[in-house]
Amino acid sequence: MNIKICGICRKKDLLTCENTSADLIGFINIERSQRLVKTGKIKDLTSSMKDQNKAVLVIEPENMADAQERIENTGLMKVQLHSLSTEDIIKLKKHYQTKNKQNKCIDPVKKYKSDLTVIRALGLSEKLNSQKIREIQDFARVCDGLLFDSEIEGKTGGTGRHIPLETATEAAKIAKNCNPDLKLFLAGGMNKNRIESELKTLDNFFDFVDVNSGVEDEPGVKNTAKIKDLMEIKVI
């Protein structure tokens, strides 16, 4: 099971994540978040990383230009989007397409490969309705990854609430049917106890679990012992 630890605000916590071999490390640049880190500080934190490819920029841009500005200001090429339409994501990925590479494949899933890795966060509630199913299918076709999180008043991220596992796995099946290469993340109140109790199912349906408040003493302040304890799951 791959583990993404999100909401890093301090150098100390970043070093702990790196030293315990977290697979991905998230930095949140969303104004409404209690774990907001400005782009300048994100660049400062990530500049010293052993492997900057593990860094994920978490943003909720107003538009494509806003997204580009945040990407350029941090230099990070993995983004977790909590906004933007499929059309904007296609344009964003095309903007960062590898130069001198021609891809004539007409398959819409493979057409938009680029240097930018896009993970789109999608909010789930107790049950999936037809609108949510279409949303999952649409984003699965154009993104590199989908992150399922609990949704409150149309907003995802930082809720600390669990998504019912049955609902999450149903969403995962729908997404993979559209794009078998898609990486799937599950967030929402994830901690070591929940991951261990549901490990077999999580491992079967998801590529990553996303942990934030589950390893904190308070928002933005990670607990070193909790991170080390969580990462023991990787050697089970």
Rank of each mutant, 00 (worst) to 15 (best):
K234W: 09
T201G: 01
L128Q: 04
H162G: 03
I227Q: 00
K104V: 15
D144V: 04
R120K: 15
L24Q: 09
M1G: 14
N103L: 14
K132W: 07
N53E: 13
K91S: 12
D88A: 08
G220P: 08
E232D: 04
K41H: 09
A65M: 08
V118N: 05
E31F: 14
R120M: 02
K12Y: 12
A67K: 01
A65D: 06
K192N: 10
C178E: 14
D149G: 05
I90L: 10
H162F: 13
F139M: 10
K93R: 05
V79M: 11
T117W: 13
G123A: 02
G188V: 04
I90A: 03
K173P: 03
K111N: 07
S83G: 10
K12T: 11
R161V: 00
R70G: 01
D44P: 06
S150A: 11
D44E: 15
P108E: 00
R70P: 00
V109S: 01
V118K: 01
L57S: 09
C105T: 14
P108R: 02
Q102I: 15
V211I: 13
K127D: 01
E170M: 14
E198H: 11
R70C: 08
S48Q: 14
K111S: 13
M190C: 09
N29M: 05
T98P: 00
I8F: 08
E69Y: 12
E151Q: 11
S130V: 05
K11G: 10
S125H: 10
K11M: 08
L76C: 12
L92D: 03
H82L: 12
E62Q: 12
T39Q: 03
I227K: 06
K111W: 04
N179V: 02
T159N: 06
L199H: 04
N73V: 08
E72I: 15
F148C: 00
T201C: 00
E18R: 06
V209H: 10
G75F: 08
F148A: 01
F139Y: 15
F27V: 12
L147Y: 06
Q34L: 15
G157E: 02
C9T: 15
F205L: 03
K54R: 12
K38R: 11
D203A: 15
T46I: 06
E232V: 00
S47M: 03
L230S: 08
V211T: 06
M49H: 05
Q97D: 09
S21V: 07
I133F: 08
T16Y: 09
E166N: 09
L24P: 05
G220C: 13
G154Y: 13
D149R: 06
L15H: 10
R161T: 03
T98C: 13
Q131L: 14
S47D: 04
G160Y: 02
E232G: 02
P180D: 09
N2R: 15
K222N: 06
V142P: 00
L92Y: 06
K226N: 02
E170C: 12
G7Y: 05
L182F: 02
N53S: 15
N204E: 14
I8A: 04
V235T: 15
F185Q: 01
H162A: 03
T159M: 05
T117K: 12
G160V: 08
R70E: 12
M49G: 00
K183D: 08
L184T: 01
E170K: 15
C6K: 10
K11D: 10
K12Q: 14
I195G: 10
K110L: 14
A175C: 07
G123D: 01
L57W: 09
T20W: 13
E135N: 03
T20R: 13
